[in-house]
Design a protein around this nucleic acid. Structure first.
Length: 464
RNA sequence: GCCGCCAUCGUCUAGGGGACUAGGACGCCGCCCUCUCACGGCGGAAACCGGGGUUCGAAUCCCCGUGGCGGUACCA
């Protein structure tokens, strides 16, 4: 599916050849579920590719064999699929590129641009505490040990970042980074540069936690003699307490979002807004508009806090904008039940997430809930006559439809000047639903049908 | 500790020297609508981290401080 998405043959006027050939990548490490920050990184890359007729490459950074499992890879693939973010190339396993990594590693070793050293982390630390910040660790070449890249003593490496501008890293502050373990297996900072180079990635868009890794990777490019891509380091995402986002903030992973009943389109919209704003500050933006409008250069520099309340509101907007059939399909998939359409139609404007539906409307299918407080308040002797009259009004009503039901029940209200609407409607609600919260009462009666409605009213009268 | 990034309402943001009495959205508060819960409508409270500079003029540019965050792995 390389090339522009279906129906989108345009290329923004301002885009030159370089942008037209844009190649971006999403390169998660499979250490567990796809977190929200990772999802946003995936989304931004996807938006860039789709908005610029570019190519999105999916690469799995699995060079850490301890943590990378097939199950974890599967989780990431699932999450992307649920988010409806597709990719044009991959998934490529970084591990599968071992031969190529070794080839270049040996070359750097042979050229003296990298060297083996048995120096440990503690050795480096000791060296640092001796020399302070004025001298980065430089090892002496040995014939065994881990492979370190030789960092020049003088000069500096500048990261050109689309979001942040230039950041200069002085070489004297940098330690020679380890690029391969003593057993020869390569490390992230080496593999990522090689793979991005071979995949001809033009724009690396990733989390800000990689910013200080970038000069090391730039040095790898330089040692290999390759041209580095452009970088964009995204601000990190925090929870409501300003700390790193985690499970106790409600939902930290894409899977949790799905289970909480959020819609993929709403999640995409919300995630896009987390660190980025459209030029006109629009809040509800369809994925199609997002593709057209997203501009990584406009991404915020400061970290954003994930706010589940705003996501919930946004999700409600999407729920209400769906047509009933689509929402029914989503809810039937979510609940595992069928025949929900009528109940969905009368609940649509009252739910924020898919998970809100069953607690609200489940009584239509599974019978009344049991809320003793509601029964005590509304099914007492004081409301008995209203319930009896309502039952009579409904018993032979034709047709048994929303409009007729409302007329009939309002007549019951007016039959007694002391009566307020809720003195009739709430007892009915509690009789039908078992609780004081439900979709509209006329609508609920119509969906239940005459027979079931009368059964529930009789049951309430029998126990009150 | 060292290296680096960042800083507008509680939150997400608009703003990029004069259009700022700092705009929008979520949330919050009040009112309206109303059969419950919601939706919706109307209104309100709420921010330029602090201090110095530059300038006729600073939320916007510079410096310092403070705070937050990231990195400092033979993790990614």
């Amino acid at each position: 599916m390389a090339g522009p998405p279906a129906g989108e043959t345009w290329v923004p006027m301002s885009m030159g050849l370089e942008s037209y050939l844009m190649r971006v990548r999403f390169a998660p490490s499979p250490t567990g579920a796809l977190h929200i920050g990772g999802a946003r990184t995936a989304l931004y890359n996807w938006l860039m590719a789709r908005g610029n007729a570019g190519t999105l490459v999916l690469r799995i950074e699995d060079t850490d064999k301890e943590r990378s499992t097939p199950e974890n890879v599967e989780q990431i693939l699932d999450a992307l699929k649920w988010l409806e973010l597709d990719y044009d190339e991959g998934p490529i396993s970084q591990l599968s590129r071992t031969d190529r990594h070794q080839e270049l590693l040996q070359r750097l070793l042979a050229e003296g641009k990298a060297y083996r050293s048995t120096a440990t982390g503690d050795d480096v630390k000791a060296y640092k505490s001796k020399h302070g910040a004025d001298k980065g660790f430089r090892g002496a070449a040995q014939d065994e040990g881990a492979v370190r890249l030789r960092v020049p003593d003088e000069g500096s490496t500048t990261v050109h970042d689309i979001i942040r501008g230039d950041t200069v890293f002085q070489h004297v502050h940098m330690d020679d980074p380890v690029i391969a373990r003593a057993d020869g297996s390569v490390l992230y900072n080496f593999a990522v540069a090689v793979d991005d180079m071979d995949a001809e990635i033009t724009h690396v868009v990733r989390g800000e936690d990689h910013l200080s890794n970038t000069p090391k990777q730039l040095l790898v490019y330089e040692a290999i003699g390759a041209t580095a891509p452009l970088f964009a380091h995204l601000p990190l995402l925090h929870g409501p307490d300003g700390k790193k986002l985690s499970k106790r903030h409600g939902a930290a992973s894409v899977q949790e979002l799905r289970d909480a009943g959020f819609l993929p389109a709403a999640v995409r919209n919300y995630l896009a807004l987390l660190g980025w704003g459209a030029a006109d500050d629009q809040t509800i933006i369809s994925t199609h508009e997002l593709v057209a409008q997203f501009d990584v250069a406009r991404v915020q520099k400061n970290p954003a806090q994930f706010d589940v309340k705003k996501l919930t509101w946004l999700n409600g907007q999407y729920v209400r904008a769906m047509d009933v059939d689509a929402l029914t399909a989503a809810l039937e998939a979510f609940t595992g039940r069928t025949g929900l359409r009528e109940a969905v139609a009368i609940s649509q404007e009252k739910i924020g997430t898919l998970a809100d539906f069953w607690p609200l409307a489940g009584f239509l299918f599974d019978g009344p809930a049991d809320d003793p407080a509601a029964r005590a308040k509304w099914l007492d002797d004081g409301h008995r006559s209203a319930l009896v009259q309502a039952r009579e009004a409904l018993a032979h009503l034709e047709p048994f439809e929303v409009g007729a039901i409302e007329l009939a029940l309002r007549e019951v209200v007016e039959a007694d000047p002391e009566r307020k609407p809720k003195d009739v409607f709430q007892p009915i609600r509690v009789a039908l639903a078992g609780t004081t919260i439900s979709p509209g009462i006329f609508e609920s009666l119509a969906v239940l049908g005459r027979e079931e409605s009368l059964r529930r009213l009789d049951a309430a009268l029998a126990t009150s």
